[in-house]
Nucleic acid binder design. Structure first.
Lengths: 346, 346
DNA sequence: GTGAAAGCGCTAACAC
DNA sequence: GTGTTAGCGCTTTCAC
């Protein structure tokens, strides 16, 4: 394991200049004679030099690494820690977040360390990690509303940016979607299709995004003669969509339009409907939310409200980067607009 | 950003000892007087000391970080780089890998940096990253058979462990499943159900695992009077499962048992069958592979061949850790056994 | 424009 | 057992 290639010193000797000059060339600092610059480049080439990041970090106090943390609720037990990761990625949402984050970081030679914070110990790990300077800041995606991590990070004065507005105010930038507007789009679509018995399988009401989507949906529906739209609460999983729809049908057999708070639940809903012999969209129209991979994979393909997760995640990374580099001081929020994507299900 | 808490020096002063002693206590080296040990602990507590990892790495030449790299084929274009991440996680497989890896690393205060190597530039990034000493080694999960990354890592003499046996031999340890045996289990299940018209939707034949599963399946089938089992090649995605099954039904309308090379395709197969009015398992039995989340989510729940991905991933991490620490020298392979999980689909 | 030199905070010989 | 000391490889004043 004693892999340590040539150092600045070696390159300097080879090029017949000082360490400082090589460092300048490596870091693209101007004020270096073009000829010398070229000589150094060649020396680097010859020696196969690669800068040692630990040494650089030690002086720059920066790692070009950020923690990408998926943060759960209070107290998942230890046994489930590995299952947490699997369940998290069961929703295409997180894969998209990763993709968006990487698309921003990679061109800048920055990299994400993946962390899960589903227990108090795990949260402590995240704080320690950042305090040790192993990462310059955190990108936090919470799966629960009452996620305590943002507050902990704030107390420790560690840089972070959040996906979605935190339930209790913390001095961090965040990106979010106009969820209320998303709910409205779904309602309008169902109404435009002539739907007369609308209902919704909403997300966990503890999550603000769920409440907003629901509010927007009901808002428009109320304005069009549906003051009391039935809503059943789901948990953003396929299973919970199946459950919710089963209950919904039992209580309101004549629904003809359902707004699901995400695509995964919409998929479950379609499954239930098909099993009951109801055609989608002819008998019951279904509108999803997210426009994730399952929206296209679903039979029928889902009409859904698009959330530009990749762009949002990239923006989140950009904000963090700016905070870290001191280019941005005050917390900011960037809100994205949803968009209706029409496919077959509604 | 000038966050730098107290240093060893500060703690030493506070405790009235030398830096070395504090270092010993921090690193749990014995040969320290219990009383002094306690004094140091208190000083650490008082000062709120956290070791600076860059400084430590500089001397230990270790980062306690590993690269978890998902490696694609040769030449995905740049635009799709962010889509690659999303598509990768569309298969529950990778979430499970992450979970397994983290379950090993976390208790050891090690962490994974997520990297995607779907293009030549991206692969180069991975090499640079490791050469700079930003990670101690790589865990490589290839999505394609002809992944060039392992060879590149080997040439650079960087430590790595692979998920699945590489198509061309490289001097790295790897974990794998006895895929052939998995194929056999599937065949036996279908035969036990009295299936008389077996077929299979296999994985990409460029992938060795696909070939093995197919071989095991056909092997048993041949031995039981089915010398020529129809096989259609899929791509491990839900869509490809749908396509493959559609083609299969067109050519062999009287199949009554299908072995899908993964659960995602099995799900697609079930969808097609249901659309065609064929009942699963009564008209056509379906056996999946992996036992991932979709196996339970599928209607009907899938009978499938379990691949213990989490355990395999954890083992992969363990092997890498041992290589890094010099506790293991020669490349090793650890092969896991598949297991049939009986549910409703067959 | 370039070099000399002083650290960044830590670990690991080596003395005592 | 504990302290002293010499770096790890890099960036960055500060002279020249």
């Amino acid at each position: 394991m004693s892999r340590q290639g040539p150092t600045l010193e070696d390159v300097a000797r080879d090029a017949g200049v000082s360490r400082a000059t090589v460092s300048r060339v490596v870091n693209g600092v101007r004020n270096v004679d073009p000829a010398i610059q070229e000589a150094v480049r060649q020396a680097i080439e010859r020696t196969g030099y690669t800068p040692n990041r630990a040494a650089r970090s030690l002086v720059t106090r920066r790692t070009e690494t950020v923690a990408l943390v998926v943060s759960g609720a209070g107290d998942t037990s230890e046994e489930t820690q590995s299952a947490f990761a699997a369940s998290v990625f069961a929703d295409p949402f997180f894969g998209r977040v990763v993709g968006g984050v990487v698309s921003y970081l990679r061109p800048r030679s920055m990299h994400p360390v993946l962390m899960f914070a589903e227990s108090p110990e795990a949260r402590h790990e995240v704080l320690t990690y950042l305090r040790q300077g192993r990462a310059d800041g955190a990108l936090v995606v919470s799966t629960h509303a009452d996620d305590p991590l943002p507050a902990l990070l704030a107390d420790a004065r560690l840089p972070a940016v959040l996906f979605a507005r935190p339930s209790r105010p913390v001095p961090f930038s965040y990106v979010d979607l106009d969820h209320r507007d998303g709910g409205r789009l779904a309602a309008e679509r169902l109404l435009a299709r002539g739907c007369r018995g609308p209902a919704t399988v909403c997300g966990p009401l503890a999550v603000s995004a769920s409440r907003e989507r629901l509010a927007g949906f009901r808002d428009v529906m109320a304005r069009h003669g549906h003051p009391h739209v039935p809503a059943v609460e789901g948990g953003f999983t396929l299973d919970s969509g199946i459950d919710a729809m089963t209950r919904l049908l039992a209580e309101y057999p004549d629904v003809d339009g359902v707004f699901a708070a995400n695509d995964l639940m919409a998929q479950g809903i379609c499954q239930v409907l098909r099993e009951r012999g109801r055609r989608v969209p002819d008998d019951v129209a279904v509108v999803g939310f997210d426009d994730s991979g399952v929206a296209v994979a679903c039979r029928p393909p889902l009409t859904t409200v698009r959330q530009p997760v990749e762009r949002m995640a990239a923006e989140m990374a950009r904000l963090l980067d700016e905070h870290i580099r001191g280019e941005r001081d005050k917390p900011t929020s960037v809100i994205f607009d949803p968009e209706l994507v029409a496919r077959a299900s509604a």
